[in-house]
Computed example of a mutant assay.
Amino acid sequence: MTHEVNDQAGGPLDVRVVVAGIRAEAKDEFLFEEVPWDRFPEGVTVRQCMERLLAGEAVRPSLARLIGLCADDMRAAVALTVPFLIRIGTDPKGRHRAEALAVTAEAARMRHQGVCTRADMLRFRGDDEWFFEVTGYLQNWSVQAARDAIAADGDLLLPLLDDPDPEVRIAAAYALAAASAREESILRAFRARLLAEHDPVVRAGLPMAIAQLALAHQDARTVEWMRFCWSDASRPPEVRVSAALGWMCLTDLAVPDELRAVLDEFATDEMARLMAPLPWMRAAEDTSTDGLRRCLRTMLHPGTCDSPYSADAEDRWDDPWS
């Protein structure tokens, strides 16, 4: 298998190469005929979804189909859509901009990003580990192709951090957090937006976006910035809670009592409901526990079983953060 994959690297079946080779004019004018969809699993279906999107027909089902392919670990052909979905998401007249950007962001993340341990919740896997989609295609290539496409169109996405629609701002931040390059300019934009942001849900999402991008690019300075954020009493509670999560994901240092005190005070049921719409929290939730509660249980008590049916379940229901 290793030999077969290496033989295809850089060739016509390497989706990274194909996405990078889409002409700027083809992206801007939605020239789907220039994209070799049929080289990749479900490519014909994906092209049909994109044609319906462009025509304004069955928009929600088409977007749902693309998200479903990502959820089912079949994102190679979806990676081909990223440059086009970005342009749909940046169209001020579009009616489904946030949803299009959400597909862009999901194509750039492996399914295992939903885990909520300190080590893995925000981590992008490197080339030293191979993961295969259910079709047998190398998932690393699909994700890298999408991340590269986001970085290449960063100039289109960055202005969306100031979009009037808070859902678009969240989706843009989620997508930009996956960019494979240009991290310095994106981090600056995230921090500037955080200072200006008035919506508490968006404010809660921005530290998560900052942490994920910083982790991917090994930006050590962000660890101290996160600590400053969660320890700063002048910051809004949702920013402090989100920064606390980000700090725990960026370092393996022992959790200080000061951070635990911040979470004890502000990581309430109300805060969990406020943060629930964030894509990072939706990825972490399960059928019995919201994302924030599950993250804190896993990060602060890593030995605790995640199953509600474990022997200590009754005790844990009495202490929702345990």
Rank of each mutant, 00 (worst) to 15 (best):
M226G: 05
R16W: 00
D312E: 11
A267Y: 00
P164Y: 09
P166Y: 06
L13N: 15
P83M: 09
W317Y: 15
M281I: 00
V201A: 09
L206Y: 03
S234D: 14
V134Y: 11
G11E: 13
I150A: 08
L157V: 02
D155G: 09
F190T: 11
L156P: 06
S62Q: 06
I210Y: 03
T251N: 09
R95C: 08
L63K: 11
A209L: 00
D163P: 06
L259G: 01
A79H: 03
F228G: 10
D28F: 07
D28E: 15
I210C: 07
W230P: 05
A108Y: 00
F84I: 04
D318C: 04
R282S: 06
R260D: 05
L13D: 12
A172D: 01
T298S: 12
G126S: 06
V202W: 00
R60G: 07
A100F: 06
M281V: 02
L278M: 09
E106M: 11
M275F: 00
P237L: 04
D72R: 14
D120G: 12
P164L: 04
R169S: 02
M275T: 07
V115Q: 14
V241S: 05
P308D: 13
L187V: 07
Y174E: 14
Q139A: 15
A119H: 11
T304G: 09
A105E: 10
W247K: 12
M121K: 13
W247R: 08
T90G: 12
E57Y: 06
R273M: 04
L292Q: 07
T135W: 02
R182D: 02
R203D: 04
R282V: 01
L13Y: 15
G136K: 13
E224R: 14
Q113K: 13
A100M: 05
C295P: 02
I88E: 14
L161P: 08
E4W: 13
C70M: 08
E99T: 03
E99L: 10
E25P: 00
T45W: 06
T287Q: 14
M50Y: 01
T117F: 05
A100K: 01
V46L: 10
D91L: 00
V82E: 10
L31F: 01
C229G: 07
R282P: 03
V143C: 04
D28Q: 15
D153Y: 08
A178P: 00
L66M: 01
I86K: 08
A175Y: 03
S142A: 15
A79N: 09
D72W: 01
F32W: 09
V201C: 02
D73M: 12
L187G: 04
E42K: 15
A243I: 01
E129D: 07
D290K: 12
H112S: 15
L195H: 10
E238T: 00
I86E: 05
